[in-house]
């Protein structure tokens, strides 16, 4: 706002497309809300199947982000800071799941972790079975959301200059201390953005989850799966469920924004 007044009015050739974009995003959401039969809302909100699905969605998406943070942050760091042969190939490989249709991602996960999969078969011999479990839901989420996180964080790491790493080293900080005390805090806005992006992607995940984890209430039925199931039998219920999911995710993001972005924006 302050820059707006100092630099003059925003030009129309930027404002018009910006408004178009905003309207395009908001109109379907507003329409969804407008069509939501609120009569059914109290009943749905007390339906244990819906609550299970909502809870499952929230915790699996969060768990997926925790895993993404643990493996994705170092991966992004390696891509951004370490020169090694084939780095561009690795970078492309990381982004492949972004273009993969989610159902195909689910089949890929089954090929790896399924009963006869490369990892799934030996695991099964040990008595561990991943498909049809909440673990499978988390893995599906990680698979589709990790690329978002890594791309976002790598961008943030590249934007923060390597010189700061050099300063920290000259001050005697080891690589670990430099990573946790300098690199990560400086890239924090990007890391948080990556987490939010990945979390939102997880929350909406459908294809990979239903293919890899199946659909069972309380165990693998996330909100999108519940919505889809309702859609084929009871579209009004589907709308109500979508509305609940929308509100829940907006609430969480708004809370995060207060807590995190407020801090980081300074």
């Amino acid at each position: 706002m302050t820059t707006g007044t100092r630099l003059g009015r925003a030009p129309a050739h930027l404002l018009v497309p910006a408004l178009l974009g905003l309207v395009f995003l908001l109109v379907p959401l507003a329409a969804l809300v407008a069509r939501t039969p609120f009569r059914g809302l109290p009943q749905r909100l007390t339906d244990p199947v819906v609550l299970d699905a909502l809870w499952l969605s929230l915790w699996t998406a969060t768990a997926a982000m925790a895993i993404s943070l643990v493996v994705g942050l170092p991966l992004a760091w390696v891509l951004a800071r370490v020169d090694f042969p084939g780095r561009s190939v690795v970078r492309v490989a990381v982004t492949v799941p972004l273009v993969l249709p989610p159902v195909v991602a689910g089949v890929a996960l089954l090929s790896a972790f399924g009963r006869s999969g490369v990892i799934g078969a030996p695991l099964r011999d040990l008595g561990i079975s991943i498909p049809y479990t909440s673990t499978a839901v988390v893995l599906a989420h990680v698979f589709v959301a990790l690329p978002f996180f890594v791309v976002s964080v790598e961008g943030a790491l590249r934007a923060t200059s390597r010189e700061y790493d050099e300063v920290a080293a000259a001050l005697g900080a080891g690589r670990g201390r430099t990573f946790f005390r300098v690199t990560v805090p400086m890239a924090l806005p990007g890391i948080v953005a990556g987490l939010v992006l990945g979390w939102a992607r997880s929350l909406g995940e459908f294809g990979a989850t239903i293919t890899f984890a199946g659909n069972f209430p309380g165990i693998t039925q996330t909100m999108p799966l519940a919505v889809y199931e309702a859609l084929s039998t009871d579209p009004e219920a589907a709308l109500t469920l979508s509305f609940i999911m929308l509100v829940a995710s907006v609430l969480v993001l708004a809370l995060l924004r207060e807590r995190w972005f407020g801090e980081i924006a300074r």
Partner: peptide
Amino acid sequence: RERRTGMVFQRQLLFPHLTALDNVAFGPRS
């Protein structure tokens, strides 16, 4: 990091997320 050097640059390269005090304390802490 094993050399006992101090560096000062034209662009100060202070860690933006740390206070002035923590910037200065960073070396001794390290």
